[in-house]
Simulated scan of single mutants.
Amino acid sequence: MAEWTPAIVEARLESAADVFRSLPDVKPQGYFNAWPEYFHSFADQVGQEARMRRPKPGPREITQADETLLWLRWLDPADARLVWLRANRKPWKPICWELGISRATANRRWQYGIAVIVWRLNGKRVPSKRSMDFVVAKVTP
Protein backbone atom coordinates (compact mmCIF):
# COMPACT_ATOMS: atom_id res chain seq x y z
CA MET A 1 0.00 0.00 0.00
CA ALA A 2 1.40 3.37 -0.98
CA GLU A 3 0.33 5.77 1.73
CA TRP A 4 -2.09 5.31 4.60
CA THR A 5 -4.66 8.05 5.20
CA PRO A 6 -7.10 8.62 8.07
CA ALA A 7 -10.03 7.63 5.85
CA ILE A 8 -8.43 4.28 5.00
CA VAL A 9 -7.60 3.61 8.65
CA GLU A 10 -11.17 4.45 9.74
CA ALA A 11 -12.60 2.17 7.05
CA ARG A 12 -10.34 -0.71 8.11
CA LEU A 13 -11.27 -0.26 11.79
CA GLU A 14 -15.00 -0.24 10.95
CA SER A 15 -14.53 -3.29 8.73
CA ALA A 16 -12.75 -5.12 11.57
CA ALA A 17 -15.57 -4.23 13.96
CA ASP A 18 -18.10 -5.60 11.43
CA VAL A 19 -16.13 -8.83 11.07
CA PHE A 20 -15.95 -9.39 14.83
CA ARG A 21 -19.63 -8.55 15.18
CA SER A 22 -20.61 -11.11 12.51
CA LEU A 23 -18.59 -13.99 13.94
CA PRO A 24 -20.72 -16.66 15.64
CA ASP A 25 -21.10 -16.50 19.40
CA VAL A 26 -18.99 -18.77 21.56
CA LYS A 27 -21.25 -21.39 23.10
CA PRO A 28 -20.52 -23.15 26.37
CA GLN A 29 -18.95 -26.58 25.98
CA GLY A 30 -20.44 -29.72 27.50
CA TYR A 31 -24.09 -28.73 27.22
CA PHE A 32 -26.48 -29.59 24.46
CA ASN A 33 -30.08 -29.03 23.53
CA ALA A 34 -32.25 -32.15 23.59
CA TRP A 35 -35.25 -30.41 22.07
CA PRO A 36 -35.89 -31.12 18.41
CA GLU A 37 -35.34 -28.36 15.89
CA TYR A 38 -38.62 -26.64 15.08
CA PHE A 39 -39.21 -25.93 11.41
CA HIS A 40 -41.76 -23.30 10.53
CA SER A 41 -44.29 -24.24 7.89
CA PHE A 42 -45.35 -21.90 5.11
CA ALA A 43 -48.53 -21.06 7.02
CA ASP A 44 -46.43 -19.92 9.99
CA GLN A 45 -44.37 -17.63 7.82
CA VAL A 46 -47.16 -15.97 5.83
CA GLY A 47 -46.99 -12.26 6.34
CA GLN A 48 -43.52 -12.34 7.83
CA GLU A 49 -40.65 -10.42 6.33
CA ALA A 50 -37.91 -12.48 4.73
CA ARG A 51 -34.76 -12.33 6.82
CA MET A 52 -31.51 -12.09 4.92
CA ARG A 53 -28.33 -13.16 6.63
CA ARG A 54 -24.95 -11.76 5.83
CA PRO A 55 -22.39 -14.38 4.89
CA LYS A 56 -19.89 -15.29 7.56
CA PRO A 57 -16.51 -13.60 7.13
CA GLY A 58 -13.83 -15.54 5.31
CA PRO A 59 -10.34 -16.35 6.55
CA ARG A 60 -8.79 -13.35 4.77
CA GLU A 61 -11.27 -10.93 6.39
CA ILE A 62 -10.68 -12.44 9.84
CA THR A 63 -6.89 -12.21 9.41
CA GLN A 64 -7.18 -8.60 8.25
CA ALA A 65 -9.42 -7.79 11.22
CA ASP A 66 -6.90 -9.36 13.62
CA GLU A 67 -4.09 -7.29 12.11
CA THR A 68 -6.22 -4.15 12.37
CA LEU A 69 -6.96 -4.84 16.02
CA LEU A 70 -3.21 -4.94 16.72
CA TRP A 71 -2.98 -1.28 15.66
CA LEU A 72 -4.72 -0.31 18.89
CA ARG A 73 -1.60 -1.38 20.85
CA TRP A 74 0.10 1.81 19.67
CA LEU A 75 -2.37 3.98 21.61
CA ASP A 76 -3.04 4.70 25.27
CA PRO A 77 -5.62 2.25 26.63
CA ALA A 78 -8.21 5.03 26.99
CA ASP A 79 -7.60 6.30 23.45
CA ALA A 80 -7.66 2.75 22.08
CA ARG A 81 -11.02 2.18 23.77
CA LEU A 82 -12.35 5.42 22.31
CA VAL A 83 -11.19 4.54 18.77
CA TRP A 84 -12.64 1.02 19.06
CA LEU A 85 -15.99 2.31 20.34
CA ARG A 86 -16.19 4.71 17.37
CA ALA A 87 -15.28 1.86 14.99
CA ASN A 88 -18.27 -0.01 16.40
CA ARG A 89 -20.42 3.02 15.49
CA LYS A 90 -21.28 3.86 19.09
CA PRO A 91 -22.72 7.40 19.37
CA TRP A 92 -20.61 10.14 20.93
CA LYS A 93 -22.88 10.77 23.90
CA PRO A 94 -22.57 7.28 25.48
CA ILE A 95 -18.82 7.33 24.78
CA CYS A 96 -18.46 10.65 26.60
CA TRP A 97 -20.50 9.36 29.54
CA GLU A 98 -18.46 6.15 29.73
CA LEU A 99 -15.06 7.86 29.54
CA GLY A 100 -16.06 10.93 31.55
CA ILE A 101 -14.89 13.47 28.97
CA SER A 102 -16.53 16.20 26.92
CA ARG A 103 -17.56 15.78 23.29
CA ALA A 104 -14.80 18.11 22.06
CA THR A 105 -12.15 16.24 24.07
CA ALA A 106 -13.43 12.89 22.79
CA ASN A 107 -13.27 14.10 19.19
CA ARG A 108 -9.75 15.52 19.67
CA ARG A 109 -8.49 12.28 21.24
CA TRP A 110 -10.18 10.21 18.50
CA GLN A 111 -8.49 12.28 15.77
CA TYR A 112 -5.17 11.94 17.58
CA GLY A 113 -5.59 8.16 17.88
CA ILE A 114 -6.31 7.82 14.15
CA ALA A 115 -3.35 10.11 13.38
CA VAL A 116 -0.96 8.03 15.52
CA ILE A 117 -2.05 4.87 13.71
CA VAL A 118 -1.52 6.57 10.33
CA TRP A 119 1.97 7.78 11.38
CA ARG A 120 2.96 4.29 12.50
CA LEU A 121 1.56 2.57 9.40
CA ASN A 122 3.47 4.99 7.18
CA GLY A 123 6.69 4.01 8.97
CA LYS A 124 7.17 7.25 10.87
CA ARG A 125 7.87 7.64 14.56
CA VAL A 126 5.33 9.77 16.41
CA PRO A 127 7.17 12.72 18.00
CA SER A 128 6.73 12.66 21.76
CA LYS A 129 7.73 16.29 22.27
CA ARG A 130 5.07 17.68 19.91
CA SER A 131 1.43 18.49 20.61
CA MET A 132 -1.58 16.41 19.61
CA ASP A 133 -2.58 19.17 17.17
CA PHE A 134 0.79 18.92 15.41
CA VAL A 135 0.44 15.15 14.93
CA VAL A 136 -3.11 15.49 13.60
CA ALA A 137 -2.22 18.42 11.31
CA LYS A 138 0.64 16.50 9.68
CA VAL A 139 -1.73 13.66 8.74
CA THR A 140 -4.78 15.53 7.48
CA PRO A 141 -4.52 17.06 4.03
Score class of each variant (00 low, 15 high):
31 Y>A: 09
123 G>I: 10
74 W>Y: 11
23 L>D: 07
57 P>T: 00
63 T>G: 10
139 V>S: 10
130 R>C: 05
41 S>V: 11
16 A>K: 05
52 M>W: 03
65 A>V: 05
138 K>P: 00
113 G>W: 09
42 F>A: 02
18 D>F: 00
41 S>C: 10
87 A>L: 01
141 P>K: 13
100 G>L: 08
15 S>N: 09
87 A>I: 02
48 Q>Y: 02
70 L>E: 11
41 S>T: 12
74 W>S: 13
16 A>L: 04
61 E>H: 06
28 P>R: 10
27 K>H: 10
102 S>I: 01
55 P>H: 07
73 R>K: 14
29 Q>V: 08
87 A>F: 01
49 E>N: 13
57 P>C: 02
114 I>A: 09
75 L>E: 06
18 D>P: 07
57 P>H: 00
89 R>L: 00
62 I>A: 06
108 R>Q: 13
67 E>R: 14
54 R>W: 01
109 R>C: 09
137 A>S: 15
122 N>Q: 06
36 P>C: 13
131 S>K: 09
81 R>K: 15
121 L>I: 03
67 E>T: 08
27 K>W: 10
70 L>W: 06
11 A>I: 11
7 A>S: 12
111 Q>W: 09
124 K>Q: 12
87 A>R: 01
5 T>K: 04
95 I>R: 08
46 V>R: 07
24 P>E: 05
95 I>M: 13
133 D>A: 15
30 G>N: 02
77 P>H: 11
46 V>D: 06
77 P>R: 13
49 E>W: 14
103 R>M: 01
117 I>F: 10
128 S>V: 15
93 K>L: 08
123 G>C: 08
60 R>Q: 06
77 P>T: 05
81 R>Q: 14
125 R>L: 13
46 V>A: 04
96 C>I: 03
58 G>F: 06
26 V>C: 12
123 G>L: 05
94 P>C: 04
119 W>S: 06
83 V>I: 12
62 I>D: 05
27 K>V: 06
43 A>D: 08
98 E>V: 07
15 S>F: 03
89 R>C: 00
30 G>F: 02
34 A>L: 13
20 F>D: 04
89 R>I: 00
97 W>Y: 13
97 W>P: 01
87 A>Q: 01
81 R>M: 15
69 L>H: 10
16 A>H: 02
113 G>S: 12
6 P>F: 06
43 A>H: 08
11 A>L: 12
96 C>T: 09
109 R>Q: 15
46 V>I: 11
62 I>N: 08
127 P>G: 12
131 S>M: 10
114 I>S: 10
4 W>G: 01
89 R>E: 00
66 D>V: 13
11 A>W: 09
27 K>C: 09
53 R>L: 14
79 D>K: 06
117 I>W: 03
97 W>E: 15
34 A>W: 11
22 S>H: 14
65 A>M: 05
38 Y>S: 11
39 F>K: 14
55 P>Q: 07
